[in-house]
Design a protein around this nucleic acid. Structure first.
Length: 459
RNA sequence: GGCGCGGUGGCAGAGUGGUGAUGCAGCGGAUUGCAAAUCCGUCAACGCCGGUUCGAUUCCGACCCGCGCCUCCA
């Protein structure tokens, strides 16, 4: 069975057929770097990282681009509110983003282009759009004329009339048509800007992605991903810019959009202020727990985020790592073919991660019950399958013993107390032994007496 | 107003025209100095009302409820 993906454009699942099997192209919208990202920003990163891993297992050459938007009015505003320059702010938060994404066990994308490195192609694209009658200049702005495009609104499934009927934003007087959007806008002297045929200015929001895709991936790409809230206007406008600049040539073959993360039944968003920063969550839960929580629902579903969800994610990973710890002396046998494996089949079906996780449980159980070569084989399968989702890749002891909090008791102290408890147990002084165990428990360390002595793990 | 998504056991979350995933939590047992971990077993769900059908959680229709987009947003 091949890969099937739900295409927002068609509103149905389709078999994935690449333009060129030797060169798969995927673009995912990255962050605007004016502050730390929240867990809602992390969802597409984790989801499309999983797709990247899956694609790499299917094709020899996968190019995954995820951009950094380092020019935007929000960054300008953030700089105005602080003593930092725009460049310093965007560099600092881009670095923070890379750090957060790495902590969530995401692979580094093949390309991470910056908007400000692509001003030339942006200006070129705007010029072409003007030349072809799809854009016009007005009061220092260049606007895209949505009426010049027959299919405008196709991706988001809405007509121009419908859009304007519900419009809640005032229409600028320089627009010929209320739905026209900005390609290029003028910069005042204290705002960042670049020289252009239309004066000193800066790009509109959507232009960068079109220009970076054109530069790095080509006029038509296989997959474009992002959060559902980008369908309109961002992706709709990207389609408009790119297809009109390329003579109507298809821009994206498969549009993929992940669902929202909810808090208390409402969408998590910056405007509602109900967001959880990845960095703050990482001070209570490790990155793999966050990743698992994000993958515990199918990517198109809404995901209700709560401490309960994270506690459950941690419990599940404790269980799976516990199974791996039980076979730590067994050398994993590399599987030669996973093509028909239930985990793989689940992922091929539009990234059905809940089913894939179910199958990880089945694998873990079978592995625990097996012996000899079969156990080694199943261990290899479990590790390889989990790797497709970026899970279970650390040694079990690292999972159980790594400290999330800075003030955690250190391993030497733990070992010393374990030894003291062993001595108490030998002397049959169980009151003393239990007191030590309680002391460690209060320090967030649980003891487990096994056949080969006592092991420990953190809460 | 237009367009769209969803309501599954205490919780998370798949899926299916018939034998009703999976996990977490709970309960019972094995094990343990006692625990923990592990193993075995177990309980429990498809918003409401109609229709189609031998049979509906699944298909169709109405209704109720929740959520989202309609130019800040992952």
């Amino acid at each position: 069975m091949g890969l099937q993906l739900y295409n927002t454009q068609q509103r149905s699942k389709e078999v994935f057929e690449p333009i060129d099997p030797q060169r798969i192209t995927m673009y995912v919208c990255g962050p605007t770097v004016y502050n730390r990202v929240h867990i809602g920003n992390a969802r597409p990163a984790v989801v499309f990282d999983t797709l990247f891993r899956l694609l790499k297992s299917l094709y020899p050459n996968v190019i995954y681009a995820r951009n950094i938007t380092d020019i935007d009015d929000k960054i300008i505003a953030a700089a105005a509110d602080s003593s930092e320059s725009i460049e310093a702010i965007s560099q600092r938060f881009a670095a923070a983003y890379f750090e957060d994404m790495a902590d969530l066990h995401n692979l580094t994308p093949t390309i991470q282009p910056y908007a400000t490195d692509h001003i030339e192609p942006m200006i070129s694209m705007v010029s072409r759009l003007i030349d072809q009658g799809h854009a016009y200049e007005a009061q220092g702005h260049v606007l895209f004329a949505v009426e010049s495009m027959a299919n405008y609104g196709r991706l988001s499934n809405r007509s121009l009339e419908d859009m304007l009927a519900g419009a809640r934003v005032e229409v600028a007087d320089y627009k010929r048509y209320a739905g026209d959007f900005v390609l290029w806008k003028p910069s005042s002297d204290d705002e960042p800007g670049w020289q252009s045929p239309w004066g000193r200015g800066r790009p509109g929001w959507h232009l960068e992605c079109s220009a970076m895709i054109e530069t790095h991936l080509g006029e038509t790409i296989d997959i474009h991903g992002g959060g559902r809230d980008l369908i309109f206007p961002h992706h709709e406008n990207e389609v408009a810019q790119s297809e009109c600049a390329h003579g109507g040539k298809t821009f994206v073959r498969y549009w993929l959009h992940n669902g929202y993360i909810n808090i208390d039944g409402e969408k998590m968003s910056k405007s509602l202020g109900n967001f959880k920063m990845v960095r703050d969550l990482l001070s209570h839960f490790n990155g793999e727990t966050l990743r698992f929580a994000l993958l515990s629902a199918q990517y198109r579903s809404e995901l209700t985020f709560s401490s309960d969800l994270l506690e459950q994610a941690k419990s599940v990973l404790d269980g799976l790592y516990g199974a791996l710890r039980g076979v730590s002396s067994v050398e994993a046998m590399n599987p030669d073919d996973l093509a028909e494996h239930p985990v793989y089949l689940a992922l091929l079906d539009d990234l059905n991660t809940p089913v894939a996780i179910r199958e990880l449980h089945q694998l873990a159980r079978a592995m625990t019950q097996a012996t000899g070569d079969q156990q080694a084989r199943l261990k290899g399968q479990l590790l390889a399958c989990a790797e497709l989702m970026g899970l279970l890749q650390q040694p079990p002891e690292a999972w159980f013993q790594s400290a999330v909090k800075d003030d955690a008791i250190d391993p030497e102290a733990i070992e010393a107390l374990i030894q003291a408890r062993d001595e108490a147990k030998l002397a049959k002084d169980y009151a003393r032994a239990d007191a030590i165990r309680n002391e460690l428990s209060e320090a967030g360390v649980q003891l487990e007496d096994g056949q080969n002595g006592t092991t420990w793990r953190r809460d």
